[in-house]
Design a protein around this nucleic acid. Structure first.
Length: 275
DNA sequence: AACAGACCCTGAGGGC
DNA sequence: TGCCCTCAGGGTCTGT
């Protein structure tokens, strides 16, 4: 599943390849992906120049001037750039025809992804204002995170997946961050100390930094987009692993809040008592 | 308010 | 070979 490192990679690649192209026409083959009225959606995009492609957390932002296309890839959404005359393949649901003979194609095997139009000046102030800060944002303070989570009687794993606390972490990187921070994923968020929050932010920033540099992670549930293959799967320490790289213990796979979760039972002790 | 569970989807993989 | 069943999971919505 694309998480922040993957979405940053997609945004960067799209920005390099399609910014300054103009949208000539749009084919919508599976309308449920689009949350707006289809005619309104088309009206907002056709004839507009894609000025810039960026991201905020897991959300891709296509800047079209007064309007912005906000696209969430969810589980398996991908973008591809192809020639106008290339055959439409299975799972390509939205085709953006560009004015230079290319097409931008939204591909989504499971049709979980969503996109909609927003006013550009309201993207951060309104549309996405419910999101927490990104983990490597210098304005993200351990104290603020601590204050937001210390009353939550839910496993820290579930709380870190809550995008309103920290924005951009998904199942893979939460497992990695908790392993690096030596925190058991089932530890109740309310038990964690300020120091734990500092560790989560520090380790998380390092992991997301390295993962972004590697172009993200390519595993079964998230393969290449735009022909770009990330390589962070080679650096994963617990997620999908069998043996702990630190102590050699067998990695446990459990379910936390309905999510498949990997941990080292020796390196990540469950904390139950307030420190 | 906070949490639990259903829902949206399809392909992969296991059992028979 | 092929059918049926289960599982994967981010975010949103509804119910408790």
């Amino acid at each position: 599943m694309p998480e922040i490192a993957e979405v940053r990679t997609v945004a960067k690649t799209l920005n390099e390849r399609i910014s300054h192209s103009k949208i000539k026409d749009i084919d919508i083959l599976y309308p449920n992906i689009i949350e707006d009225d289809i005619d309104y959606f088309k009206k907002c995009l056709i004839g507009k120049e894609i000025k810039k492609v960026s991201n905020y957390g897991k959300y891709l932002l296509f800047d079209l001037g007064d309007k912005t296309l906000i696209s969430h890839l969810r589980m398996e959404g991908k973008y591809f750039i192809k020639g106008e005359d290339e055959e439409v393949v299975k799972h390509e649901h939205i085709i953006f025809h560009l004015d230079d003979g290319r097409t931008l194609r939204y591909h989504d095997t499971r049709k979980f992804g969503r996109m909609h139009i927003a006013n550009t000046d309201e993207v951060m102030s309104k549309e996405l204002s419910f999101l927490g800060l990104e983990i490597d944002d210098p304005n993200l303070k351990a104290k603020d995170v601590y204050e937001r989570i210390h009353k939550r009687r839910k496993p820290i794993k579930s709380v870190l997946l809550d995008q309103t606390i920290i924005n951009g972490l998904g199942n893979i990187y939460v497992d990695e961050v908790l392993f690096a921070s030596k925190i058991h994923p089932e530890t109740l968020a309310s038990v964690l100390t300020l120091k734990d929050c500092e560790n989560i932010i520090r380790e998380g920033s390092i992991i997301i930094g390295k993962a972004t540099e590697a172009g993200g992670t390519t595993i079964r549930s998230y393969t290449s987009s735009l022909g770009v293959y990330g390589s962070y799967q080679n650096y994963l320490k617990v997620h999908t692993k069998e043996v702990c790289p630190e102590c050699g213990s067998k990695i446990l796979k459990i379910r936390v809040g309905g999510r498949g979760t990997y941990l080292c039972p020796k390196c990540q002790k469950r904390q139950t008592i307030l420190k």
